[in-house]
Structures are given as structure tokens and as C-alpha cells.
Deep mutational scan, measured.
Amino acid sequence: MPVRRGHVAPQNTFLDTIIRKFEGQSRKFIIANARVENCAVIYCNDGFCELCGYSRAEVMQRPCTCDFLHGPRTQRRAAAQIAQALLGAEERKVEIAFYRKDGSCFLCLVDVVPVKNEDGAVIMFILNFEVVMEKDMVGSPAHDTNHRGPPTSWLAPGRAKTFRLKLPALLALTARESSVRSGGAGGAGAPGAVVVDVDLTPAAPSSESLALDEVTAMDNHVAGLGPAEERRALVGPGSPPRSAPGQLPSPRAHSLNPDASGSSCSLARTRSRESCASVRRASSADDIEAMRAGVLPPPPRHASTGAMHPLRSGLLNSTSDSDLVRYRTISKIPQITLNFVDLKGDPFLASPTSDREIIAPKIKERTHNVTEKVTQVLSLGADVLPEYKLQAPRIHRWTILHYSPFKAVWDWLILLLVIYTAVFTPYSAAFLLKETEEGPPATECGYACQPLAVVDLIVDIMFIVDILINFRTTYVNANEEVVSHPGRIAVHYFKGWFLIDMVAAIPFDLLI
């Protein structure tokens, strides 16, 4: 008679799926529990143990900040960024110097990925580790590398530091407007667009060049630039800015003055950032001319202004700041037409079709709590990747769950009947059967004279019903998954307890 339990259901295979997918890609990662103190490590794979030199037993239950890997060259700011990422709910990448158990130093890129439950609360953290440099290539500990984003994938490793954006290309926007319009339909740009040429040739750093990471940081200074100062900065030398009595002219307006920039070969870094931020506020060169004239017309309804409409929906549905990093990277690809469009465009503009998908598509409701890094690593669709929660398995109709209350009560009843059979069957065979043979035949009273025979008949009927119930009862397979398919249940029961239950259900007393 089957006594099969499996009270692990309803099970959740999400954690096993993450481990299996990460292991298949030869990654070095740990999984931490966000619900406990210090976000203790609950799993670390073999790749991480080989990377740091510690065994799994030495890593388990330690804080996922990996303070046991810190050393003299470990930056405090990087460690603080990892700790801050564990307090938030967004994906974050941090470069930090770690030390192995043998004392060797290596520069590592740590990717902190939160995993949320159905309520939107962070319950786990996945920390992925990628070695960037070994100890002989690690720089000085005073050099802070965590304020910069990861290198873009479309640049060669040897040319990542030679990417320079020439400031004269930004200063000569109005001069290039006529050349853009003359391109017409034969050019790649839309009317009114501004073409910015980027020099990728390796050259020595000069005062006129600005690194790509500095251009990325310009967006942080746009908020500090007032509207009046932006307007004066875009007017140009024809209309000098008016300053109040006793007030000095704005240095932001002076930063885009061609006369002032041409007199000296070098520009201050602050002026460069502010000038680029001011130019980015204009949607095209037409807006710059309109600002000089004193009238700013409404933005025209053409394809170039609607190019950012799908980007707005993608940004609203993005799951991490990696989408913004990807957008900034692609927006700086050289030799393309940049349409400086305000994100607050007309909502009635139709979304044009684009061959290049900048932001990841909208994630469906079932995966809105899973970050983009987890979705990318697992390579699963929205119909396959579940949320991290207890999910009731989908069972067929008329199927009994093996952990249901009805099955528990039924098993206790069958257990009592088995005990009765084990006690009274030998007793009936030894004593009652002998008395029946010696006594007179009682054929007239039937079952009324033999109450134990009636009980034995009921017990046999219950055993037959138990066999039928076992054909529709779920079970737990070797992978700790609840199986509810009727065919698989029948095959599993035939290979197991079916023969024993059938022999126990045969009414031998009635056959004798």
C-alpha cells in the first residue's frame, strides 16, 4: 500500500533555474538572501570558489559584500557603492579590487542584480563577478574607477581610450546646418538635424578633445543650467548677453562664444560640459537660429522629431539603469545623424518603425519583477520565466494532490484497515475457520451469522477504491517536481505499489 509523501509542494524551481543557467555559462556568482541580516550568502558556485580561493563552506553565510576579499588596494568608495546597491532595488555595476585567499590582487567587475517577489519586494541578490585585470595590471588604489561605466561593446579594446569628441564640431553647429540641408533625401539625416562627426583615429590627448566618459557625465550638469543662461549661451556672438549692473557675465554663455574659444586653444572642462549641455537642449539648428531671432517656433511634425517616441515608452518600462547606459552608448555611435529632440514631445505622434532597438522591449506582467540581467542570462521568455513566489501546480481535472487534506485522511483510514487485516486475518484463519468446520452448517442466516465476513468484505472494497484513487494521485519525481499527468501517474504506480495493492485487495476469504 503506498505511503508516498512529498510535502515540499507547491515547489518553486526558480532558484534552481537560475543556478542551472548560470552554471551553463561558466559564470562566477553568488546568491544572497536579502531578508536576513547583512544579506548572507546562501549559494556560491564553483567558479566563484576558484576565483577567490575560498571553499564553499568558508563563503556560505558570510555577508555578500565580500568584505573578506578586501585588501589594501580595495577602494572604500567601491565598497560603499556595493553596500548601497544592496540597500536599493536597481541593478548596478561596480569595479573593485579584490584579494584572493593567497593574497593576489585582481580588479573585478561586480554586477549586483536584485530579484523581487510578486509584491515588488527584493528577496534575493545575485552578484556576478568578472575579472577585468590581474594584480600586475591593477593601478594605484588612489585612482577611482567606479565613477565610470563599463566599456562599450562596439569599441575595440585597444581603442576604448582613444575615443574623442571634438569640441569644434559642437561649436560649428550653425555652420554645418547648410551642408545638412543640402544633403536632402540623399543624406542619412532628416531636415533640421545636426550631424556630429566623431574622430576615432588614435591621437595624443589634446586640450581640444573630450573623453567619452566626460560626455556621459554632461547629463548630470544640465539641471544646474538655468533657462535664461541656456538661451544666452545659444544666442551666440551676435547678441551678447546682458548683465545687470554690478553683475558679471555668465561664464556659461561665454563658453560657447566662437570668438572667445578661437582665441585660446584650450577650454576648461567645466565650460566644455556646460556648452555641450546647452546645445543638447535645442532640438535642431533651426531652433538655434530661432533663439537668435527671439522667436522659438513649435517643433515640426516630421520623422526626426518622432524618433524618440518609442524611446520614451522603453525608458518607462525599463527595469534597470543598464538600459540608460545602453541608450547613452548607442546615442554616441560615430558617423550617424543625431536628432536633438526633447523627450517631452507630442504624445499624438505616431511611433516610426526603427531597425535598431535601443531599449529592451516591454516586459510582460509575469516578468515585471525580474531584472534585465536575470532575463538576459536565463534566456527565457515571458511565458517560461515565473515570478519568485509559491505557485500552485497546474493539475488535470479529477486529480488528487498527494499533500491535500483528503489524501491525508484517506491514508490514515487505509492504515487502520491494514492494521485490522494484519490482526484479524490470522485470527480468523486459526480459530474461526476451525469452529466453522466443526459446527453445523448455517446457510440460512447468511452474513448475519458471520459479522467478521462483512467487515472483511468492506475492507476489500476499500482497498479496491484505494487502488483507483492512487491512479489519480500526484507524486514527486526525482527532481522534486509534482507530477499531475494521468499517464505518468499510471506508469509510476504500475512500477511501484500496484502489484502489492492488488494482492492485498483480493478477497481470499470469499474465494475459499
Rank of each mutant, 00 (worst) to 15 (best):
R4I: 14
H7G: 07
V8I: 07
A9Q: 15
Q11E: 11
T13Y: 13
T13C: 13
D16N: 14
I18E: 03
E23I: 01
K28P: 13
I30G: 01
I31T: 01
N33G: 06
E37H: 14
S55M: 04
M60N: 03
Q61C: 14
Q61Y: 03
H70R: 03
T74Q: 01
R76T: 08
A79L: 13
A85F: 01
E90K: 08
K93Q: 13
D102Y: 01
C105K: 05
D119S: 08
G120K: 09
F129Q: 01
E130T: 15
M133D: 06
P141A: 12
D144T: 15
G149W: 06
P151K: 15
S153H: 06
R159L: 14
P168E: 13
L171N: 15
L173A: 15
L173P: 15
A175G: 15
S178V: 06
V180I: 14
S182D: 05
G187W: 11
V198G: 01
D199Y: 01
L200E: 10
P205G: 14
L210Y: 03
D213F: 05
D213S: 06
L225N: 12
P227Y: 08
P237I: 08
S239F: 09
P241Y: 15
R242E: 07
S243N: 09
S243V: 05
P245H: 04
P249V: 15
A260W: 12
A260N: 12
S261W: 05
G262Y: 15
S264R: 12
A268D: 03
R269H: 12
T270E: 13
R271F: 15
R273M: 15
A277F: 12
S283R: 05
S284D: 09
I288H: 05
L296C: 07
P298Y: 01
A303D: 05
G306H: 14
S313F: 09
L316I: 14
S318H: 08
D323T: 09
I330P: 14
I330Q: 14
S331V: 01
K332Y: 04
T337R: 12
K344N: 06
K344M: 12
P347G: 13
F348N: 04
A350C: 08
I359S: 11
E365V: 14
T367Y: 13
T371V: 15
K373F: 14
K373I: 10
Q376V: 08
L380T: 04
A382W: 15
L385N: 05
P386G: 13
